[in-house]
Amino acid sequence: MLISRVVAPRTSRIVELPTPAPARGQVLVEILASGVCTSDLGPWLRGPQGDDPIELGHETAGRVIAVGSWNSRWREGDLVTGLGGPGFATHAVLDDEWLLPVPAGIDPALSIGEPIATLEEAISRTPIGAGSRVAVVGLGFMGLGLLQLARTRAPRTIIGVDPNPEARRRARELGAQVVLHPDEVAGYVASQPDAGSADPRADVVLEATGVTPGLETASPLVAPFGTLCIVGYHHAGTAMLDMELWYKGATVVNGFCPDRPRVMQAMDAALGLVASRRFTYAPLVTHRFGLDGVDEAYTLMSERDPGFVKAVVTP
Results as ranks from 00 to 15, higher is better:
F88M: 08
A89W: 05
A89L: 15
T90E: 15
T90G: 15
T90P: 04
H91R: 04
A92M: 12
A92W: 06
V93T: 09
V93A: 08
L94D: 07
D95P: 15
D95W: 13
D95R: 07
D96T: 10
D96L: 14
E97F: 08
W98R: 03
L99Q: 14
L99R: 12
P101H: 11
P101Q: 07
P101R: 10
V102K: 12
A104M: 03
G105N: 06
G105I: 00
G105R: 00
G105Y: 02
I106C: 05
D107W: 02
L110M: 13
S111A: 14
I112K: 00
I112R: 01
G113E: 01
E114D: 09
P115D: 05
P115Y: 03
A117D: 02
A117N: 11
T118W: 15
T118R: 09
T118N: 11
T118S: 14
T118F: 04
T118H: 13
L119N: 13
L119V: 09
E121T: 07
I123E: 14
I123N: 09
R125D: 07
R125H: 12
R125L: 03
T126W: 05
T126G: 08
T126D: 14
P127E: 01
I128S: 13
I128C: 14
I128F: 14
G129Y: 08
G129A: 10
G129R: 04
G129N: 11
S132T: 13
R133D: 12
V134N: 11
A135Q: 08
A135E: 04
V136H: 01
V137A: 04
V137P: 01
G138Y: 00
G138F: 00
G140Y: 00
F141M: 12
F141Q: 06
F141K: 12
M142P: 10
G143S: 03
L144T: 04
G145K: 06
L146D: 10
L146E: 09
L147F: 05
L149P: 11
